[in-house]
Simulated scan of single mutants.
Amino acid sequence: MLKFYGSLFLFVRALIRIFYRKYSVFSPNSSKGPIVYIAHHQNLFGPFVILLSFPHHLHAWILDVFIDQKTCYKQYVDYTFTKRFGWNRTISKLLAWPISFGISKLLSSGKGIPVYRGSKKIMNTMNLSVEALQKGESIVIFPDIDYQDSSSETKDLYDGFLYLEKYYYRKTRKHVCFVPLYASKMSRLVISGEKIYFTGEEDFLSERKVVLQKIKDNLNKLASICGDT
C-alpha cells in the first residue's frame, strides 16, 4: 500500500507518541469500507488524540484558514492569540509567523480536507470528500459548534457535513456510513459507536435531523460508557 500521510506528519506523530501517554483504540467497524467518523472536538483534545492514536488512515476536515500559511498567520494574529488568548499583538505576530508555517505544512502532510465554511467553495470540500470515500478512504469530522467546550458532553453540532450523504449517494447509489468516534480522557480510550445510515425512506431535510440526533446521542452514550459523565 502506498504511503498515505506525508513525511512531516509521520515524523511529528512518531515523536509525540514517544512522550505523550498512550490511548487504546476500540473500533471494530474501522476496517469495513469507507467511513465518515463524527467525533467530539473537546477544545482540540478530540482531534489531537484521534489523529495521534487511530491506527487507520483518516482525512480530517480542517477549517481552510489553517491549511494555507498566509490565512493561518492571519487567523492566529487576528483571533486566536489576540482575542481568544488576550496576548499582545506584537508578540502574537512574532509567534504566529513560525507557527503558521509549521501548522499549515503539518495539516497538509496529514491529508486534511479544507472546509470552506460560509463559502460556495464548500463544494470543493464535498467533492474531495466523496473522491476519498470512493477510493475506500475514511474521513473524520469534528462538527461541534462550540469547539472550545472541553466537557465530555456533545452539545450542538453543525449539520452541514450530512450533505455528504446526498453527494456520495448521487455518485455511488450507496448511503454513507457515519460512525460516532469518541476520545475518552477518563479511560484513555478512543472508541467508536454504532453505524448510522440514512434510510432514504423520507425526504433528506427531515431525515437529516434524525441522523444528527442519533449521532449526538451515540457520542454521549460513548462518553457515559467510558465514565466521563
Rank of each mutant, 00 (worst) to 15 (best):
T90L: 10
A183L: 10
T80S: 06
K120M: 06
F85D: 04
S187P: 00
V25P: 04
S150D: 15
V130R: 11
K83H: 10
P28S: 07
S104V: 07
A132L: 05
S92R: 02
F54E: 10
E137S: 02
K83Q: 14
K209G: 02
Q148M: 14
G6V: 13
S7K: 08
K32P: 00
T199K: 13
L205N: 10
S24M: 05
K221P: 00
L2V: 13
N43P: 01
R17D: 05
G33C: 10
Q75V: 03
D217N: 15
M123C: 00
V179C: 13
K121C: 00
L164A: 11
L222M: 06
F4P: 00
P34A: 15
G227Q: 08
V211Y: 05
T229E: 06
F101T: 09
L51A: 08
T199C: 03
L107V: 08
Y182K: 04
I16G: 00
D159W: 01
K214G: 08
I103S: 05
N218P: 01
G112F: 02
S192G: 13
S119H: 13
M123S: 08
G227A: 08
I103C: 02
N218S: 15
S109L: 07
F85S: 03
Y79T: 15
N220A: 02
I141G: 09
E131D: 15
Y37W: 04
W87G: 04
R17Q: 14
D64L: 01
L8I: 13
L2N: 14
K32Y: 06
I225F: 11
T82S: 14
F48Y: 04
E165N: 09
F81C: 08
K221F: 03
G86E: 14
I16Q: 02
F204A: 10
I139W: 12
D68H: 06
Q134Y: 07
A60Q: 13
V176C: 11
H59L: 05
H40K: 15
V179W: 11
W97A: 13
V190T: 08
K3S: 13
T80M: 03
I113Y: 06
V211R: 06
S92I: 07
I145P: 02
D159A: 12
T154K: 05
L128E: 13
R89M: 11
K135G: 04
F198A: 09
F198M: 06
Y169M: 03
D228L: 05
T154G: 03
K209N: 10
Y73T: 07
K74T: 14
G112T: 03
K174Y: 12
L106E: 06
I38Y: 15
I16F: 14
I91V: 14
F45D: 12
K166W: 04
E194T: 10
I196R: 04
M186Q: 12
E194Y: 00
V49D: 03
K74Q: 14
F81Y: 15
D64G: 02
A132E: 05
S92L: 04
F48R: 00
S129V: 08
R13L: 04
G102P: 00
N220K: 09
L95N: 05
F161C: 03
D156S: 10
E201F: 02
T172S: 09
Y20M: 11
L219I: 12
A223C: 08
A223L: 02
F81E: 07
